[in-house]
Write a protein that binds this DNA or RNA. Structure first.
Length: 420
RNA sequence: GUGGGUGUAGCCUAAGGGUUAGGGCACCUGGUUGUGGCCCAGGAGAUUGUGGGUUCGAAUCCCACCACUCACCCCA
């Protein structure tokens, strides 16, 4: 038999880690609901075209990172590499654009990108995704940003700071790209090969090149913020004012440009220390042209995607205390087949009374059963044997105190549920 | 796709050419009759990542592949 192992870049989330996930999801959900977001679930796979159009041909995600396959009917499908395109499709397809606007949506789930794994980067990873559709108010931008900020702060992150930039709009971007290109035209011999290619395909991306030789060129490059149109400049100005008002720290990062084509105006990320090179713990921004691009009515939108694996890495690095998940408080041990039948009845009665209970399996000595009870971490072990059946009263052992009492079988469920 | 590091039981690890691969954690069974944790004794668990090569002899040396890992790239 071959020894199976999980596919490269995937993760088994074992029981001992589930409390982290549970905690993060619960907090995210709570914050979203407090701000009026409603949950939407969209398929894990969609028509390949949707992502190609939405994210943009020429982006790394579309060109080399998608899990694409042909189904038995010959359809080209792709495991979602992100949430936004699918949520936009659902918004259009289900007529959410005729609902009261804005529509505020959140989602959780796995996303897939074919990439070489490393610290904080997996091929299947989990996102918490938030979108506000149908309003261009910078107040929507700030609400999305504040939501993720509050999530991190509430999970114990310190020294938070947004990286913030604007990528303009179809009105001002061509002008800036022209300025950028003419600046680069004077430095062509100083930059790396990748950047020469980027200049043609996605010129803004030269700004976040990490090649050593490009750094001084980037440092001298013109800033988009100096070339925004009035509307985009005004939008950013107001957003900054709102961020200041709420006390959310941010740093303008002229080099922040994102790998997905759909962004307009606001783009932002939050970086975390201590989880390796993949430090972006969320990324998002505004995408006012996306819904129209995907065949819907012109509709502005803003959103953010949060990587849960990375959050949990940070939490572990910070030794954040997370409440453990509930486990049964009672273990029912038995001696003899009559007692085992009584034990079986008892654990179900306990569970119906909302008291978690373990049933001892097999026919073993009491020592072995109590050893298991101790390892299970229960508060009480109920012992049922011939003596107990004869007297009609079970022995209940308090595992912490090491003391035991006799409790009438008829009162046992009440007795145990009254202590917890 | 490109580079570096690492692969010995579920986990941590010893043995750096020489008999049945050693230990710790965890797991199981005992230490008289029906009582956990500590202690003691015992047990089970490993085709040393896989395949090939060198050698009288390979966990150990060589090659290839695979996986993990870190970094580039890109991003969550």
């Amino acid at each position: 038999m071959p020894r199976y192992q999980r596919p490269t870049g995937t993760l088994d989330i074992l029981p001992e880690d589930q409390h982290y996930w549970d905690h993060v999801r619960a907090r995210a959900r709570r914050l979203a609901e407090l701000a009026g977001f409603e949950r939407i679930d969209v398929p894990m796979f969609e028509a390949t075209q949707l992502f190609a159009r939405g994210i943009g041909a020429g982006t790394d995600v579309v060109d080399k990172e998608m899990y694409t396959f042909t189904d038995k009917g010959g359809k080209q499908l792709t495991l979602r590499p992100e949430f936004t395109a699918g949520v936009m499709r659902a918004y259009i397809e289900n007529g959410l654009h005729v609902h009261l606007q804005p529509v505020k949506l959140y989602s959780f789930g796995p996303t897939f990108r074919y990439d070489r794994p490393q610290a904080g980067r997996y091929r299947q990873f989990t996102q918490f995704n938030v979108e506000i559709l149908g309003d261009q108010d910078p107040a929507a931008d700030v609400e999305v940003m504040a939501l993720v900020w509050d999530l991190y702060a509430g999970l114990g992150f310190r020294n938070l700071e947004f990286q913030l930039n604007s990528t303009g709009c179809p009105r001002c971007r061509p002008g800036y790209v022209a300025v950028l290109k003419s600046y680069y035209a004077e430095h062509l011999d100083e930059i790396c090969e990748d950047c020469r290619r980027r200049l043609e395909r996605s010129p803004l991306r030269v700004l976040d090149c990490k090649a050593g030789r490009c750094q001084s060129v980037i440092a001298g490059a013109p800033h988009f913020l100096d070339h925004l149109c009035h509307e985009c400049a005004e939008h950013l100005h107001t957003l900054r004012e709102y961020l200041d008002l709420l006390g959310r720290r941010y740093a303008i990062n002229h080099r922040l440009v994102r790998g997905l084509d759909y962004y307009t105006k606001t783009v932002f990320e939050v970086w975390a220390a201590g989880i390796g090179a993949q430090a972006a713990v969320c990324g998002g921004g505004r995408y006012d042209g996306l819904i129209e691009l995907l065949g819907g009515p012109p509709t502005p939108g803003v959103g953010v995607a949060v990587g849960l694996e990375r959050i949990i890495l940070v939490m572990k690095g910070l030794d954040v205390e997370v409440p453990s998940l509930p486990t049964p408080r009672v273990f029912v041990a038995h001696l003899g087949s009559r007692a085992k039948r009584e034990a079986l009845r008892l654990v179900h009665a306990l569970r119906h009374a909302d008291v978690g209970a373990w049933l001892s399996y097999g026919e073993r000595g009491l020592k072995s059963q109590l050893r298991e009870a101790g390892k299970r971490g229960v508060r009480y072990a109920v012992i049922l044997g011939e003596d107990e059946l004869a007297t009609g009263a079970a022995t209940v052992r308090d595992m912490d105190a090491g003391e035991q009492v006799s409790v009438e079988l008829a009162e046992l469920v009440d007795w145990l549920s009254g202590r917890g």
